[in-house]
Design a protein around this nucleic acid. Sequence first.
DNA 1: GGAAGTATACGGAACGGACCGTATCCATGA
DNA 2: TCATGGATACGGTCCGTTCCGTATACTTCC
Lengths: 213, 213
Amino acid sequence: MAQPAPAAHPPSPTSHPLPARGRPRSERAHQAILQATQELLLESGYAGLRLEHVAARAGVGKATIYRRWSSREELVLELVSGIGAPRPTIDDLGDTRAALVRAVLDPIMTITTTPFGPTIRTLLSEIAGSGGPGERFRETVVAAHRAAIETIVARGVERGDLRPDVDAPMATEMLLGPVFYRLIVGGALDRDLAERVVHAYLAGAAVPQTDWF
Amino acid sequence: MAQPAPAAHPPSPTSHPLPARGRPRSERAHQAILQATQELLLESGYAGLRLEHVAARAGVGKATIYRRWSSREELVLELVSGIGAPRPTIDDLGDTRAALVRAVLDPIMTITTTPFGPTIRTLLSEIAGSGGPGERFRETVVAAHRAAIETIVARGVERGDLRPDVDAPMATEMLLGPVFYRLIVGGALDRDLAERVVHAYLAGAAVPQTDWF
DNA sequence: GGAAGTATACGGAACGGACCGTATCCATGA
DNA sequence: TCATGGATACGGTCCGTTCCGTATACTTCC
């Protein structure tokens, strides 16, 4: 992340000609707020997160938080988007199946091994909502995963591993859908899930010869 | 001191041997509360739902609400579970594909055509949480859909439409996962989605001959 | 059978507590 | 000089509880 860009209120993030009047903002306070938010999210979840606790643990005044983020929701979503997003991971292995497993496993690992997982569960409502903050999450985290999968599928078709008539836009839904399903409904999120999802996606459930016109 | 409530839930309407001392609870008030909750959920969403508004619209005191439900969350989840759940819909059509499309379409229709679609989105965090209320939702709504799908898959195998080695327990994840995915991430929830999901699930993405060992 | 008694629920109102987001204070430092 | 720092107080909102006087059932007793 490393967002030196001052948030919300000040003019443009990358606006240069600021004379920088007055005392400059403390980067230490900024990081301390994010760190405290992350810790408290893990301990209490989003619904239980109290900005006064964040301020206390960060050794900061509440006003300092509101100078940088306009609301509790803004703060938390920026944190989560930053954690869950990137993972370029588009190294092609020459093996379509292995690449797909990795693409499914990536969000699974993010969910199960980073603070992102326990946190995102408490943020699902905000993410699913049509509000601006959820929009940003979709644009960063989700778009990255969709792009990765569509790249793999396109290469798989070129390579002759996948059917030329495969419904490419549906690949993300078919492969990541089960992950979201278990995120909500419960169930193991592990490598076994990733492998079974990819296998089911590739092999299909119908008896081979009969059903395709 | 800490135990004022006799029971969070009233004696069930068909409860037998209670002597029923005192004034019985008003069924009219009960229904009015549920009705008002439903209306206000649609207008304001879960986060914006105010119990005092519910009470006012229902023509009821707040205490009357808390006599029946222990919290706002309890009230709303009971409402949502009740509506989203049943739909027996296990009429076998003799057509595995059509049955699967119907099984996928059922939750889609519930989401898009009943008041609870917009509401479920605002309740995702509570449902995903490990708390009791979410548990009840999973036991009712989700379990019903899983049972329906597993029945269809089993019959499909018997009938010879589906591969005998199909990963049956994964069928629900593969088929309903995309619905949950779009519920969170966005995207159309319609018949076209159901048909494409089922088609992808049946046909598989891999080139037919090669990949099955 | 009818009157009195008992137990609970009713609608209404107020309250305590928690929390968000804002405002104000003085000190700090580029 | 002046915006930021940490600290604290405040207004406002809303949950969940508690109390009030009233309403409605069953039970007891005449």
